[in-house]
Design a binder for these strands. Structure first.
Length: 466
DNA sequence: TGAAATGTTGGGGCG
DNA sequence: ACGCCCCAACATTTC
């Protein structure tokens, strides 16, 4: 009568879950444990509540139970294993340093009590050591990394969800006691309208995307006012669907440029994990060390205006408000808004990263850290310092009819298309007709775009010279 | 997964 | 008919 313990991390699913699969294959009983990840930001906590509730329902439907605990895994797991008489603790192998450290400590402690921590590969497409250069090193540039991944090939293997779970009687904390949901104010309305956390929601999103949008993905994904992206990121982050399942699903479709580009986007996530494995302080420390001396500006007021979507640049403000309201932001707009913060405002990328961490449902150490470094120009394979997005041109190019801006910045909605991305260019009559009073109903630009660009080039030239 | 400045070309208006 | 200029369109380079 062996009981196996499964410790869920960001692999909150029953299907294609190697840790769970191994436990069910070898044990007669399985204890299923989730320990609250206290690092989660506000939006992630909201998501976590619903994905845990969904996971628990699926587990209970199969006769099992989900044990919820708070505290340090290094204390909780050995104690629980001992209480249950468990010798096998299964978990996902994570690239995040927080869990790597916990795993390392647990390995020692569990061994000492005659048990073992068995880590299963499941959060990325490839194990962290699998993709190497010919010289045996890690990749620092995306394109050859992606090429190596395509050549390695994703194994055509999906593990079924266990049909039946024989649980154990163990006390669990109550999910509702964790305070994961906002109460006053309840800011989650826009999120409830947009998302269905959990395995079923993830599968539906993937099905829908593959059926309707993936072939046109190559170009449609750039237009934030259209439904051109998969919106799978939070589902993938929490492991409600395995990256392998997403890959195999897409790769099995008739070949098209859209499919190929979507697979490459999955590899950007993979590349971020690859970077996190090499650079454990990816979220805070620039990979390119000369950026430690970058002349950033300290500007609380500008940071706050950016966070609230009050910079006076419509496409930036629309993106920041989409983030605030829905816990997600379209990728094209992420690049624009992030570039604006780091280059036009010269605010440290870490401050943008921290805001995204709190606001994104999918806040992911690897993807968020790597992407902010990419924008700031201090990361691996980063955007060169002179690549400064002009948010006005970007807005006009990728939101030509202003649909996106009008949705998230309603006070500009009545402006004609010509001015929707540049209200400061509109004459007084046009503004009055649209019900806009610049500086009152909508802010004037925080910084002049040309001046901000010039200032950024000057600042970046200092780093370049080092 | 840029933008702006600068350079080049070629069509058409015009004397 | 021809050269000249203008400038849009495209290409290259610079930031």
């Amino acid at each position: 009568m062996a009981t196996h313990l499964v410790w869920f991390k960001n692999d909150l699913r029953l299907a294609d879950n190697p840790a769970l699969h191994a436990a069910c294959a070898e044990g007669t009983k399985v204890a299923l444990l989730y320990i609250l990840d206290e690092r989660a930001g506000g939006a992630s906590r909201w998501w976590l509540y619903y994905t845990l509730a969904a996971l628990r329902r699926r587990i209970e439907a199969r006769g099992g139970t989900l044990i919820l605990r708070r505290g340090d895994p290094v204390n909780i797991i050995p104690a629980l294993a001992e209480a249950l008489g468990t010798r096998d603790v299964h978990t996902a192998r994570s690239m995040e340093p927080y869990w790597r450290k916990a795993d390392k400590a647990l390995d020692v402690i569990l061994k000492a009590q005659g048990a073992s921590l068995r880590r299963h590969h499941s959060v990325s497409l490839f194990p962290p050591e699998a993709i190497r250069t010919k010289a045996g090193g890690a990749y620092g540039v995306f394109t050859p990394f992606a090429k190596a991944c395509f050549e390695a090939g994703v194994p055509d293997l999906l593990l079924p969800a266990p049909a039946r779970l024989q649980g154990v009687e163990t006390p669990s904390e109550a999910l509702d006691d964790w305070g994961l949901l906002p109460v006053k104010p309840d800011w989650a309305g826009g999120m409830r309208a947009e998302w269905t956390p959990g395995e079923a929601g993830a599968a539906a999103r993937l099905r829908d995307f593959c059926a309707n949008a993936i072939n046109a993905y190559g170009h449609e994904r750039d237009f934030p006012g259209r439904l051109g992206t998969s919106k799978l990121s939070p589902h993938i982050h929490f492991g409600e669907i395995s990256p392998r399942a997403v890959w195999l699903h897409a790769a099995a479709l008739p070949a098209s440029s859209g499919v190929r580009i979507f697979l490459k986007e999955l590899l950007w996530r993979e590349f971020s994990l690859h970077l996190l494995w090499q650079h454990q302080d990816l979220r805070t420390r620039p990979i390119r060390e000369e950026f430690g001396a970058f002349p950033w500006a300290e500007d609380e007021a500008a940071l706050r205006a950016w966070q609230r979507g009050q910079t006076g640049i419509p496409i930036v403000d629309a993106g920041m408000r989409e983030l605030w309201q829905t816990g997600w932001m379209h990728n094209r707009v992420r690049m624009i808004a992030a570039s604006y913060l780091v280059k036009h405002l010269l605010i440290p990328w870490q401050q943008g990263e921290a805001w995204f961490w709190d606001c994104l449902c999918e806040a992911d150490e690897a993807a968020n850290g790597a992407s902010w470094q990419w924008v700031a120009g201090c990361g691996a394979d980063a955007a060169p310092y002179f690549r400064i997005f002009n948010p006005l041109l970007q807005g006009r190019k990728f939101d030509p009819d202003g649909a996106y801006v009008r949705r998230f910045v309603p006070e500009l909605a009545r402006l004609p298309d010509k001015y929707i991305h540049a209200p400061w260019e509109a004459d007084a009559v046009t503004l009055a007709r649209a019900g806009i009073h610049l500086g009152q109903t909508y802010p004037a630009p925080l910084v002049d775009l040309a001046a901000g660009r010039a200032r950024a080039l000057e600042a970046y030239a200092k780093v370049k010279a080092m």
